[in-house]
Structure formats: C-alpha cells, structure tokens
Design a protein around this nucleic acid. Structure first.
Length: 680
DNA sequence: TTGACCTTGAGT
DNA sequence: ACTCAAGGTCAA
C-alpha cells in the first residue's frame, strides 16, 4: 500500500494536503496537540462522535511514522518530546483538571500562563467547562451501548438511544422501548428521526474538549441536515402523494452547493475516492446525496450571478447529443408540474438569458467546469445509460451559447458543452481522458443570435505541461450566500467565543416555541424538542378527532392531523400521550444547578450574569454598550427565529381543509389526554 | 407509453 | 413570499 503522509492545516488554516482552506466546521482538532486537521483529508477519520471527543491526530498516535515530520506547524509540536510531555500531564493523577489545562497551555504556548486577572478568569472558565463535560459524560450515554450518543434518536416514551443501537434493537424484532417496554410506533421504527438538539450539544462538548486548551471555540463538521437519515428517503406525506418528490436525506460529500468542478477524494470522507466518472445512481435523490447535482427536479444547478455547477440531460428537451459534446437547451418555458394538459411538455415562452440560463452563460464566459449527469430518460441519446438511473459523465465546459428560434416557434437558449475531463468517458475505450479538441461544426449556428463566446482564458483548462485539465485560475468562491454572511459568521463566532460551554449548551436545549430553555422537555416523534406546556398550549382547543354523523347516524370518527410546530409532521399520536424526555430534563437541571452554584461564588458573578440563560435582555444590553454591531446581529437572529416560529405556527393551524385521516383505532384516539380541550 | 397528480428545495 | 423545476408513481 502506498503510504500517503497525512498533513494538518498550517497556521493560516490551509490544509497542507489538499491546499484548501476548510471552514471551521470541516476541521478536527487533536486532543493532545491541539493542531487542526482537515477532516476530509484524514485517511481514518474518527468513526463516532464519542471517538471524536478524544481524537488524537496521526502525529500524536504515531500513525505518520515514516520519519517525515510535518514542517514547523504550531512550533513543531510533533518534533520534540512535547507529545510525551502532554501525555505525562494527562496521566498525572496528582494534578487537578485545572492544573492539567494550565500545564498544557504552558507547554503549547512555550510561556507560563499569565496570572493576571484575565488569565485567572480563563482558567476558572476552563474548570467550569470541565465540570460541565463531566455532567455531559454522565448524562448523555446510550443505555444500550453505554457510550456517548451517536446520532441520538428519542422514542415517544422519552428515551434516547444511538440510532444504530435503536435500529439493531428493532431489527431483533423488538416492538417496545429498550428502557420502559412501551410500544414503539411503526413509523418511528421505520424512520427514526435524529434529535438534533442532542447532536449539537454533543458536538459542542467534543469541540470544547479540544479547545479547552486553546481558546477560540471551534466546532466540527456541521451537516446542516444531519437530522435526516443516511439513505435518501421520502416523507410519509410525499409517499401518500405518490412520491411526488420528498426529501433527500443528508449529503455524503463535503462539498457546498456552490462547488464547481469534480468532487475529489478529500470531499468524500465516506469512501475517500471522490465521485468517479461512470457512477450510477438510482434516482435524483441519490444523485443529490452524492453532491453531484443538488436540485431534485431542475436540470440546471447554478446561480445567475455566480455560474452553473452541474446539469442533467434527461430528454426533457430536444438535445443534440454527441457524447463528448452536446447542445443543451436552457430552462424556463418548459413543462409545468401542475399536470395541466395544455402546458405540459410544451414550451410556452421565449427563453432569455436570465436566472439559470444566465448562470450557464456565466459558466461559459468564465470557462468554469460543469458536472454533467445523463439520465436514462434521455432515450433519444445513445450516450444515455442503457438501463435505469443517472450516470455521472464527468466535467464539461460550455464553449459558446446563443439563442435561436426553436421548433415550436419560441426562442430558446442553447449551449455547446464540450467534455474536458481527466477520466475517459463511460462510452469510450480510451484509457486516458479528454484532450483539447476543435469545436464541432454546428448547423444551428446559422440561425443563431445573441451569440456569446468566451473572450478570456478559461478558469478550467488543459495544462499541457502536466497533461491534465485543472483550474488555471482560482475557482469561484464556494459559498453561495449573501455577501455579508461571512461577516455574520464571524460575529457569531466571536459571540460564541465569549459564551461558556454551559451557556451554549443550555441555549441548544431551548424550546422551539418559546425559545427559552426547555422546561419539562418533550421530544416529538419527528425529533423536535419543546416544553411540554408550550406544545400543549399550541394545540389547546384543538381536538384530536372529529366526530362525524350523516342523516342522524353516527359515523366513524376521523383522527385529525396535528402538525409539529417546527416541521409540520403529523404528531397526533404523540400528542395523545405526551411523555417527558427525562434524560434531557435531568441534564438541563444539572446544568442549571451548576449555574446557581457558580453564581454564589464572587469571582464569577459578572460573567455569570452575562450568561444568564433566561435573561437575554441583560446580556444584550451589556453587549449593546460594548459592541453595537453585536447587538444588531443578535436582534437579527431573534427576528429570524421569531419569523420561523410564526411560520411554523401557521402551519399548525387547523383549518377546514386540513388533512384528515381515518382513525385506525378510534378507541385510542378517543382516550385523548384531557389537556386538549373537548372534542367538540 | 402517456397523462394526471402531486412535494420539496432553491433562486430571486 | 413567490415562482419555478430536465421528477416519481400510479392508473389507464
């Protein structure tokens, strides 16, 4: 096996292996030496959250033992006996956690930790954090495997398990909770939702472990939709609607939506191979899972000001496909999805270079690489996959684009795609990838207008010296977000840095309705946490069932759909028998008790006030004095949350037309918790 | 093979 | 808040 030496990030945060600058979410910090590593570039990334907690880098574990040490990163930690020294500190039973932390700091910084006021405060905070971590260690263990929760799921009876433990338990044919033997609903068994609040809390805990000795808060890779399951899935509702579309599950690769070009091994921590030409996926859901083409329906992925990242050839339009090059038609004016006979499959508008069509034009002008996927549906093309599914065919570049009048008399935008990938195309027996080729002769060009050609050198091109296609100019910024999002992120990071772990943890345990720390927490079957009373109030006066009668006869009652205030899933069954999540409740209690205890002491009075959970106003005011920007941000955040909440509440509104389902078990539905008013 | 019938997510 | 989208499935 060829040994590829693993490398951490340098002082500027640039990964020395892939030369990318990972965002903080993609970094993993070594427990021993506190050096940051690009998660995606690790050959053996930690497998579980629990193992991440105490992750030691290859340098500290001796994995990189080929004698070649890293260049002087963070003072050449790995080159001396520093690692040994740190380990010695860790194993010294006579030292308190506080002393250990101070000694670690001294070792790493090479100078004694200052004993001034500020320094003291820091050490005290550190101690505080350690206590919090001990609480977490006690409270966040799965009762099956006794380890820290890995992808925690919460049963309706309020017990928490690792996803895998839960699934294994169910796979054994168990119908009831491993803790209390209460029956687990079928849906929960089929689609156990991850309790993302718990996930975040655990992630914070593990990040605080490694940052306890180095100051600024760092978090690990946050997959924003990590509360979805690994496999793509379709919501129950969508299934009822003939799998109209549905959700797609989490994304396996670590590329953002705005990522241009091939998906490389470092972006594929699951398999460490990247997306290979010729890979086939069952459907668009799966194609999205692997980050190749994000939209579930649209054929073009892109943004009008940034460019287009990928396209799907699906036979929806009449394309001229020659494998290594093809003509692609722009979007808009195509069929509409409402199933209207008149509009389906017929173009009804002139296409313009706006929206996604403009995105393609930007990619043409800039010479960006575009990922191309062919669907089996493109039956007119002999290059489409024979059987089923969608196939990744590699990187293409748009050499030129134009408009012309299409067959139906409407103007269409057209694009000439030419392949420029380092791997051979699936249909060729060539052993090597593409070489620059002359532009094909296109007869459509005779009637073309608004023709656009690239004037400057392309961003993605062929390097004759290396004999490969590569970025000749730096790729566009990956972050397809508003311009001030970076600013926002930095502000948020600064703010996070000022909060103690306990404060941040408690914040994560906030009710999605009242935004306060959960009191009497309950976790819905969709994995969202609320105060029991908040949830009950939301549905007060709403009846769980509707009694029906016709012509004086009483008919079967209908069970009403009760939407989760956060995600609008039906939680009627859960509401009929709400159970507390006692583990979370205990944890919150312990964290809060600690607050009281600390506030009793004099040294931390001020900082504790600042952190008082239920008292955002106080902290906001304080911040307003010091940092106007910050408080502005705070307000903005709150606004957002508030509006989200409002939205959610609207969804939970029960109108006449709200979906009704036949009650499978009217008896059960009738034995409604009396908290929910009368049944009309 | 085709039409009807839908959800969700992303861009603006 | 609104619109759009090169999808998926069942029934005919």
């Amino acid at each position: 096996m060829t040994h590829v030496n693993q490398l951490p990030c340098d002082e500027d945060g640039v990964c020395m292996r892939c030369k990318a600058t990972p965002v903080e979410d993609e970094l993993l910090t070594c427990f021993t030496c506190a050096i940051s590593w690009h998660l995606a570039c690790l050959t053996c990334p930690p497998e579980s959250l629990a193992s991440m907690l105490r992750w030691d880098c290859p340098g500290c574990t001796g994995e990189n033992n080929d004698g070649e040490m890293f260049p002087a990163v963070v003072g050449g930690v790995h080159s001396g006996g520093l690692v040994e020294a740190i380990k010695e500190i860790e194993s010294d039973a006579t030292l308190s956690e506080q002393d250990k932390a101070r000694k670690r700091q001294e070792l790493l910084s090479g100078k004694p930790v200052e004993a001034d006021k500020k320094g003291k405060q820091k050490v005290v905070d550190l101690d505080d954090d350690q206590d919090v971590l001990e609480i977490l260690d006690d409270s966040l263990n799965c009762s099956v495997c006794l380890q820290l929760f890995d992808r925690p799921v919460t049963t309706p009876c309020g017990h928490n398990f690792c996803l895998k433990c839960f699934q294994r338990w169910c796979a054994k044919g168990n119908q009831s909770c491993a803790n209390c033997r209460q029956e687990i609903p079928k849906k929960m068994k089929m689609e156990p939702p991850i309790n993302s609040a718990l996930v975040t809390v655990i992630r914070m805990a593990k990040s605080s472990r490694s940052t306890a000795s180095r100051g600024p808060a760092r978090s690990f890779r946050v997959v924003h939709d990590n509360n979805k399951q690994e496999k793509g899935y379709t919501t129950e509702r969508a299934k009822r609607r003939r799998k109209a579309n549905g959700a797609s599950g989490r994304i396996f690769v670590t590329v953002p939506k705005g990522h241009f070009g091939p998906i490389l091994p470092e972006n594929d921590p699951q398999r460490n191979q990247g997306i290979l030409v010729g890979e086939i996926w069952e459907d668009r859901f799966e194609c999205r899972l692997w980050g190749v083409h994000f939209p579930l329906v649209g054929g073009i992925a892109g943004q009008n000001k940034v460019g287009a990242q990928s396209v799907v050839l699906s036979g929806g339009y009449q394309d001229d496909d020659h494998g290594d090059w093809f003509l692609y038609s722009g979007s808009s004016g195509g069929r509409n999805l409402r199933g209207n006979k008149g509009t389906s499959k017929k173009q009804s508008f002139h296409q313009k270079f706006t929206g996604l069509n403009q995105a393609l034009r930007v990619s043409c002008i800039e010479g960006y690489p575009i990922r191309v996927v062919r669907s089996h549906k493109a039956k007119r093309s002999c290059y489409a996959p024979d059987d089923k599914g969608l196939r990744y065919d590699g990187i293409y570049r748009i050499e030129m684009c134009w408009r012309r009048t299409g067959a139906q008399g409407f103007k269409i935008c057209q694009y000439l795609f030419v392949r420029c990938d380092n791997s051979p195309a699936p249909w060729t027996s060539d052993e090597r990838g593409d070489r620059p080729r002359p532009l094909p002769v296109i007869k459509e060009l005779k009637e073309a207008f608004d023709t656009t050609k690239r004037k400057e050198a392309p961003s993605w091109g062929f390097d004759t010296a290396d004999g490969i296609w590569k970025w000749l100019k730096p790729p566009p910024d990956d972050k397809v977000k508003s311009e001030n999002s970076g600013k926002r992120k930095r502000r948020a990071a600064r703010k996070r840095g000022r909060q103690t772990i306990r404060q941040r943890l408690l914040r994560e345990f906030s009710c999605l309705i009242c935004q306060q720390v959960l009191t009497m927490p309950v976790t819905t079957t969709c994995g969202h946490n609320f105060c029991k009373t908040c949830l009950e109030n939301t549905f007060s006066g709403k009846s769980l069932i509707t009694r029906r009668s016709a012509a004086g006869r009483t008919l079967r009652s209908i069970k009403n759909v009760m939407h989760c205030p956060f995600c609008s899933q039906d939680i009627a069954d859960f509401l009929s028998n709400i159970q507390l999540n006692r583990e979370v409740m205990d944890l919150i209690e312990r964290l809060e008790k600690k607050t009281e205890k600390n506030e009793g002491g004099s040294a931390q009075q001020v900082s504790e006030n600042e952190e008082a959970e239920n008292d955002d106003e106080v902290s906001e005011n304080e911040e307003a004095e010091n940092d106007e920007e910050e408080s502005e941000n705070e307000e903005g955040e709150n606004d957002e949350e508030a509006s989200e909440n409002e939205e959610a509440e609207n969804e939970a509104d029960f109108s006449e037309e709200s979906e009704n389902e036949q009650a499978d078990d009217t008896e059960e539905a009738s034995s409604v918790n009396s908290d929910f008013g009368d049944e009309n």
